[in-house]
Amino acid sequence: MIIAAAAADAPVGGVAGWAADLMEKLGGPGAGLAIALENLFPPLPSEVILPLAGFTASQGRMDVFAAVAWTTAGSLVGALVLYLLGALLGRDRLIAVASRLPLVKVADVERTEAWFLRHGTKAVFFGRFVPIFRSLISIPAGVERMRLPVFLALTAAGSLIWNTAFIAGGYALGARWHEVTDLVSLYSKAILVVVAVAVVAFLAVRLLRSGRGQRRHSGAAAE
């Protein structure tokens, strides 16, 4: 296997083993395919796949520039699929789904929509540097029908920076490529904690307001 030399420092299995097999069999296109799937299935971590691609390139099994090009192409393909999904879903269906969800108000969706219309270009570009969000941001871009050339350009620019940084780290560290993953895992966990706290706060506010509304309604009915 291409990463046998690193086995002593970082036992390979799971996502890393799967990605390594893809790259060994397909080279650059295998790295691109792995990243395309990572966009569609966020639990597949790019912070594992990309440094591993860099390490593979450092072993002469793949050209480092080809690794950057193929992974960026994979990012574009995955993002485009989610963009088209958002476009097919459309605003009306999104509103209809939101209206049926507990603790979610149509007004919240409309405010989010207004925010995206104001800041969508920045969200699509900078969102490429945020775990989970980097995939999901393509859906509202499709729902709002962001101009496709703009969406693709922003996605390509953000993904090129993200992919190059991780591949370069894996290339430079060689058999210690997993140190990039370890470092970014801390960053990813911090982001997820912030998101989790925000979600809990949102739900708590919603429940509190709902309780107050019910008490007011009960009081008015009693009068």
Rank of each mutant, 00 (worst) to 15 (best):
S210Y: 11
L160W: 07
T112I: 10
G54W: 02
R61M: 08
M23N: 06
A98Q: 00
G60S: 04
D108C: 04
R111L: 11
A69D: 05
G13W: 01
L207F: 10
A198G: 12
R128N: 11
L203I: 13
A98V: 15
A6L: 06
V109Y: 04
K189A: 14
A204I: 09
L89V: 14
G127N: 06
D21R: 04
P42H: 03
F126A: 12
V193R: 01
L40C: 10
A221G: 06
V199S: 00
A157M: 13
G120C: 09
S99F: 02
S135E: 10
T121N: 13
A10D: 04
V150I: 14
Y171V: 07
E24V: 07
V104Y: 04
V150W: 05
S185H: 02
D92W: 01
L37V: 15
V130G: 08
G78M: 01
A196F: 15
G120T: 07
I137Q: 05
V106C: 09
D108V: 14
L160V: 13
K105T: 15
A204L: 12
A190L: 13
T112K: 01
L136P: 13
I35P: 00
D63N: 11
N39V: 00
A8Q: 09
A221D: 06
L33E: 05
A141R: 02
M23Q: 02
F133Q: 11
V193C: 13
G74L: 05
K25L: 14
D92L: 06
F126K: 06
R216L: 13
A222D: 11
I167K: 00
P42T: 08
V184H: 00
G158C: 10
G127D: 10
E38Y: 06
V64S: 07
L52K: 00
V124T: 11
V199R: 00
T155C: 15
I161V: 15
K189Y: 12
M1V: 11
S138M: 10
A73E: 01
A96E: 14
L89H: 03
P42K: 04
Y83F: 15
R118T: 14
F55H: 04
D9K: 03
S99H: 05
I3K: 02
E113T: 09
L208K: 08
L52Y: 02
A107I: 04
G213V: 02
A73N: 00
W177P: 05
L103H: 13
A87R: 12
Y83G: 11
T56Q: 01
G60E: 08
T112D: 12
K122M: 08
G86P: 06
L152Q: 05
L192W: 12
A172N: 05
G54Q: 03
L203V: 15
A222M: 09
A96K: 11
G90C: 13
L44I: 15
S99D: 15
D9A: 08
L33P: 08
S135N: 11
G28S: 12
F126H: 03
R206E: 15
V124Q: 01
A201Y: 07
L154T: 08
P131K: 03
G127F: 07
S135I: 08
V64D: 06
